Simulated scan of single mutants.
Amino acid sequence: MDRQQLEIGCHAKIEGLDTSYGYVPTLGAGIAYCVLFGISMILHTFQFCWKRTWWASVFSVGCLVEVIGWAGRTWSSECPYNSTAFLMQISTLIIAPTFFTAGIYVILGRFIQVLGRESSILKPSLYLWIFCTCDVISLVIQAIGGGLASGEASKIDGNTAPGTHIMVAGIVFQLFSITIFVICAADFVRRCLRLRLLQNLDGSAIPLFAATILSVICIYIRSIYRTIELSQGWSGYLITHESYFIALDGAMMIVAVAVFNVLHPGWLLPRNVAASKREAPSVDDVELNHSTEHK
């Protein structure tokens, strides 16, 4: 039986013949993450419909894409050579976090509106436009690279290197853009603490603030992992050891999105912009207070 027949059919692992993964995906992990992301998707759909926070549908869409990806890995656990299952999971699991970051951009922008312009180096609307644009560009580059690499992989002695390099360039650009976002978010947190802006938030908004920070950290860890993984190539250590993928992609993403099921922005996101802006102290006020205290 040749390689092409293996890729279009469903055949168990053959001793001495490697799969595209370098291993056979674990069935239990695939099912578990399909269930977890499926539950989160159902909850997010119910929550954004109930509170009519339609923009929060991005979390549901992201979960759906994750379910499709992990379904592909579940399929691969039974049919490890099937190329459709492999491409199904690799394309969707790269795209899915983009929907989660889009939701975070909206949440952060709302916090900036509430706490005042002095809380951020960027205007609230710029977070969505700049970083979503960067995400789309990186995904297009990755899609082009992935398409070229997969096309060569299906050929005998095909050269996957050019496509892989393009794909890596896309994910490096994505890591660069999310690093800039993390720096901006860290500066936002620093300003909030320095100017004591969090005192102007309702008590219910503080947990959402913390949830957003946790989600950003998880997505950033996953981005660093995927960048290193793909830069090592299709036969690298990280990409051929499933435990890293389960922990640093799957687990990070379920925490990043499920935390908003527990602390949903539809319930907790502050709404009273005008009042908060009036109450928020300016930089001059804080410096004046500090100098008065020292005297």
Rank of each mutant, 00 (worst) to 15 (best):
F245D: 08
I224P: 12
L198P: 01
G236M: 07
F245Y: 13
R196Y: 04
N200T: 14
V189W: 12
I213E: 05
L214H: 02
I219A: 05
I219T: 09
Q174R: 06
Y220A: 00
L175Y: 00
A256I: 07
F181V: 00
F176N: 05
Q174V: 01
L248H: 10
R226D: 09
G236D: 03
M252Q: 09
T212R: 01
Y237I: 07
D249T: 04
A186P: 00
P207T: 02
I217M: 14
S231M: 12
M252L: 08
I217K: 06
I221D: 10
I224W: 11
S231E: 11
T227I: 06
V189C: 08
Q232K: 12
Y244T: 03
V255R: 05
R190F: 12
G203K: 13
L214S: 10
R191G: 03
A251R: 02
Q232G: 13
S231V: 07
E229Y: 11
P207I: 00
A210M: 09
I178P: 00
G233Y: 09
G203M: 05
G233M: 09
S243Y: 09
T227F: 12
Y220Q: 06
E242R: 07
M253Y: 07
L214C: 12
G203S: 14
L193N: 11
I219M: 15
R190K: 10
V182A: 15
Q199P: 00
L238V: 09
V189Y: 13
E229C: 05
S231K: 11
Y237H: 15
